[in-house]
């Protein structure tokens, strides 16, 4: 993984305040946990029915009945709980998740998120993504700034079917940290060695750049 991507994931980890209940989506968000101290006070939730998700275990130590929603063999921590799928999503829909970190195909300037379907190419089903995006108290996205074809994932409007409307608060990319504001995208931090002009050029929507110096990560 590129250095910029690793720093993006490390930066996103700082978004997790002590005591939060957090769901980490499949893909890059899952790796955020690698940047938290082993004794950091956080309660991780996974959709298939567990709070207090502990570290991923190698196959020889795995419990065949203990996985996260991405299929990784995880472990318990002191205070873990198991429950059924209705209870798991009751937590999500009733606002018990302080934060969720999700991947994205596209994010629009109004916070619309598209991350579940590319018509004709990719349609594995929506899983728990809609409820996480629509109901977690804060939704942040981790994604590369550009897709594999070099097109911006940050757009004025999503072209793909959306997962949830106006749900994203903040986007962590390999180039920048960008907030979704009532006035659209606003640059908050820049990746080391990347200029605001480069970020503007890589963003397919207007981007507000503050006058004050920007922190880097």
């Amino acid at each position: 993984m590129s250095d910029a991507r690793t720093r993006m994931i490390a930066r996103a980890a700082r978004e997790i305040a002590p005591g939060m209940v957090v769901n980490l989506g499949i893909g890059m968000p899952t790796q955020v946990v690698n940047h938290l101290a082993a004794d950091y006070p956080v309660c991780l939730h996974t959709e298939n029915g567990m709070t207090g998700v502990g570290p991923v275990l190698p196959p020889e130590q795995a419990d065949r009945n203990l996985i996260d929603a991405g299929g990784a063999y995880v472990s318990t921590v002191a205070g873990s709980a198991f429950f059924d799928s209705a209870t798991s999503f009751a937590m999500v829909r009733s606002g018990r998740l302080d934060l969720t970190m999700l991947g994205a195909f596209e994010v629009a300037a109004n916070g619309d998120l598209a991350n579940w379907k590319i018509p004709g190419k990719f349609s594995p089903g929506v899983g728990g993504g809609v409820e996480l995006a629509q109901k977690a108290r804060r939704v942040v996205v981790l994604t590369t700034h550009l897709d594999r074809a070099g097109r911006s994932k940050l757009k004025a409007k999503c072209a793909l079917p959306i997962t949830a409307q106006a749900c994203v608060a903040r986007i962590f990319t390999d180039m920048a940290v960008i907030d979704v504001t009532p006035d659209g995208f606003a640059l908050v931090e820049v990746a080391q060695g990347v200029s605001p002009a480069e970020i503007c050029a890589a963003t397919d929507a207007p981007l507000t750049i503050p006058q004050s110096p920007l922190p880097s990560f």
């Binding site: 959709e47 799928s85 209705a86 009751a90 089903g125 929506v126 993504g129 409820e131």
Partner: peptide, 15 residues
């Protein structure tokens, strides 16, 4: 024929 449901909605429909 496949019908996709949001995961927690499938759970609630069954419940």
């Amino acid at each position: 024929d496949v019908e996709f449901n949001p995961q927690g909605i499938l759970a609630e429909r069954i419940r």
